[in-house]
Amino acid sequence: MAEVSKEDSEVVTKIKTEPESAVDLEARILQLCESIPDGINDAIIQNTMPQCDATQRVMAVNRLLSMGKLDLIKIGNKLLYKLKTADAASNQLKGSDHQEKQIYQLIDESKNMGIWMRDIRLKSGLPMSQVQKTLKVLESKKLIKAVNCVNAAKKKVYMLYDVEPDRSLTGGAWYSNQDFESEFVDILNQQCFKFLQQKLAQSREGDLEPTAKRNASYASSTEIWKFICELGISKVKLEVEDIETIMNTLIYDGKVEFTVVPNGDGSQLKIYRAVVSVVPTSGFVRTPCGVCPVFNDCYEDWDISPSNCQYMNDWLSF
């Protein structure tokens, strides 16, 4: 702080001529901190706000620090001011012990990906029981929350209370409250296929040359995305990537195939088309035996045999 006052002796007069309210100054410093999240030193404050004199700045900074809105960080021999996130939280942390602050810090750092309890323990070096207790306290204060991971049912991660969890944790558009919405996926799956099927039918009707005919049956993921958006069946906003995920399920359903073509701007475009299976329904399932639940127990002259088979009886009764 001593440094600060020494340096700025020349500008004192200027500032005096335009006195600013202390509150204004504090707000501006906070703004500045927000725009430079890595932290600011006194020189930066001085440069952006030359109208303030050293005492004013010192007073403002000290006030902010005492309010817990700013953090003072020492890097090398330089001091940095950094904005403390979640003001309310830090207010509530007031009066909490060191452990709570430390854990809160760790959770804060994990941002929207959250942090696993085990990692908290490892990073903080605190015993498990302590961590558990502290997490409970923080949770009850509504400072942090536990979020269930969609891809691992038992895995719980902690993050700040008002942070929106990452897509990879929630599963994106397909999950509501960690529940997989399979009906939604099914409907999208059907609609996408319908769209491609129509394209295929249209292409087959037209009197086109074979290559053109095939090309006409393709649709890019963007086209399909637009179609789905226009249908308005989704309450959630879907991205093109979401549609590509749906298209993958259709590929796995054997109903669609895709290929990649170069887009005009050098990027690659995924295009999809509906396909027909090479064989009609296999003859295997056209006999009762093909779908028989006791197929493996069926022997000549046994309790279950082709001659006394009830499924055959049903199948052969006219």
Binding site: I251, Y252, S277, S282, F284, V285, V291
Partner: peptide, 27 residues
Amino acid sequence: LATSHIESIIQEKFGSKAFRIFKVLLL
């Protein structure tokens, strides 16, 4: 051809969702 037949059998015997799983494994 044989694969297509097998796929069709899976589809009919276990349903289309099971078929999707099968196809994922196949691919």
